[in-house]
Write a protein that binds this DNA or RNA. Sequence first.
DNA 1: CGCGGGCCTTCACAGGTCGTTCACACGGGG
DNA 2: CCCCGTGTGAACGACCTGTGAAGGCCCGCG
Lengths: 119, 119
Amino acid sequence: MEAAHTNDVLYAGELEIRPGDGLVLAAGRALTVSVREFGLLVALVQRAGRIVSRGELYTLVWGSELRDGDRSIDVYVHKLRVKLETALPAWAFIHTHVGFGYRFSPEASHVFHNSTTPR
Amino acid sequence: MEAAHTNDVLYAGELEIRPGDGLVLAAGRALTVSVREFGLLVALVQRAGRIVSRGELYTLVWGSELRDGDRSIDVYVHKLRVKLETALPAWAFIHTHVGFGYRFSPEASHVFHNSTTPR
DNA sequence: CGCGGGCCTTCACAGGTCGTTCACACGGGG
DNA sequence: CCCCGTGTGAACGACCTGTGAAGGCCCGCG
């Protein structure tokens, strides 16, 4: 299980996450995320910039070992992507590294004509 | 139990709350709320913008620990919602975060049921 | 004293959301 | 063309929350 959430606020681009409150803000607006979604997001953001394996994520969020064939991580990554994409279409946050895992990093999505750019 | 109410007046959108007086004004008109309803509302408004767990709310307003299976918080949230909705139909104040708790924040109601709005 | 009204708590049922697991689609490599 | 890894939509039971109502208390009033 993830160590008790700190009260530190995490920032990632337009995202603001309060681990202690279970709150996710996208451009200032509250996002509705489930407990699992929130745990996964926090785990990823806390390791932003590096690739995290499914096994590590599962252990962090679910608190046990990832069983062979379990697709939970994939499903929840998808759910998160949908919600983040809906809230902030101009950005891509969770990137797949085939064979390795996922990497969190706010990057400009390849959406046509938008004025926002990554930094 | 909640520390003695201050005399500071709380504002939240069209709402005005006077913790010292036990008074709630919606768009200037007084609302009739019971002691529990008032305590819960004050606790939420004082923590506006963040998610407050049922346990924390119960401790704040009821003054003891929330027992397993106790639905009091849910019931009173409902009572408050009804009164606020009646007084200010265009606004939603108390938002549910499943698995986490409730969050107070004045937001435009997503219900636009008037004759000029096409469906 | 008995009555009526409001308030708080507890139930029970209804409706919604969540977490898990499948099944199938897809794309790149071999 | 087949294989492997991942994306995605859907099904389903378990769990969580919304909601109306009943019951017991307390209190002011007649």
